[in-house]
Amino acid sequence: MNTQEEKGRKAPEKRMDVSSALRCASGQLAELLQCKPGTVSAMKATDDGWCADVEVVELERVPDTMSVMASYRVSLDAGGNLVGYERIRRYARGQIDRR
């Protein structure tokens, strides 16, 4: 490989640690949606970075067990930048999953 090709190549980005990725996922999603950052219920490394499921409060209600919650799947690149998200579930705060 000649030096021209080497200059055009970008070094692979180092993957951030899981705790930093967790904070990035919830913080960036909350900023985009203009809501309180919620908990991260799932987190896994991917080939390109990280994938996280983040729970957020979409509508606050009284009593709080009637608040509307949502789960979002968030994709981050290796550096922790949000590259995509989608809502995968919407539910009342007091609702329990039944499988």
Rank of each mutant, 00 (worst) to 15 (best):
W50R: 07
D64A: 15
T46N: 02
R9N: 14
R15P: 08
A52C: 05
V62L: 14
K36E: 12
V54C: 00
A92L: 14
P12S: 14
S26L: 08
A21V: 06
C35N: 08
E13L: 13
K44G: 10
L59S: 07
L22G: 12
R99V: 07
G94C: 04
A70S: 15
E86A: 13
G84K: 11
T46W: 01
L33I: 06
L82Y: 01
R9T: 12
S26I: 05
S26F: 07
G49A: 05
G80T: 06
S19D: 15
L32Y: 02
T39Q: 11
D17M: 03
P12N: 10
E6I: 15
K7Q: 12
M69Q: 05
R87P: 02
G80Y: 07
Q34V: 06
R23M: 15
W50N: 10
M43N: 08
W50F: 11
E13D: 12
A45L: 05
L82V: 04
C24I: 02
A21S: 03
N2P: 15
G94R: 05
K36T: 09
L59Y: 03
R89M: 06
K36G: 12
V68K: 10
D53L: 07
T3R: 07
R61A: 15
R87N: 10
R61P: 02
V57S: 15
R99Y: 08
V18C: 05
R99I: 07
D47I: 03
M1F: 14
M66P: 00
V56I: 14
R9Q: 15
M43T: 07
D77K: 08
R99F: 11
S20G: 05
R90I: 07
V83H: 05
S71T: 08
V57Q: 15
E55I: 04
A92V: 09
E31V: 05
V62G: 02
L32K: 08
M43H: 09
E86Q: 10
S26W: 06
L33Y: 04
G38T: 03
I88A: 02
G27L: 09
S20Y: 07
E31G: 14
R89P: 00
D97K: 10
M69T: 00
G84C: 09
L76G: 08
V68G: 01
A30R: 05
M16R: 04
E55V: 04
A25G: 06
C51W: 05
R73H: 06
M1V: 13
C24T: 06
K36V: 06
D47V: 05
G27C: 13
D17Q: 06
R9A: 12
V56W: 01
E58R: 13
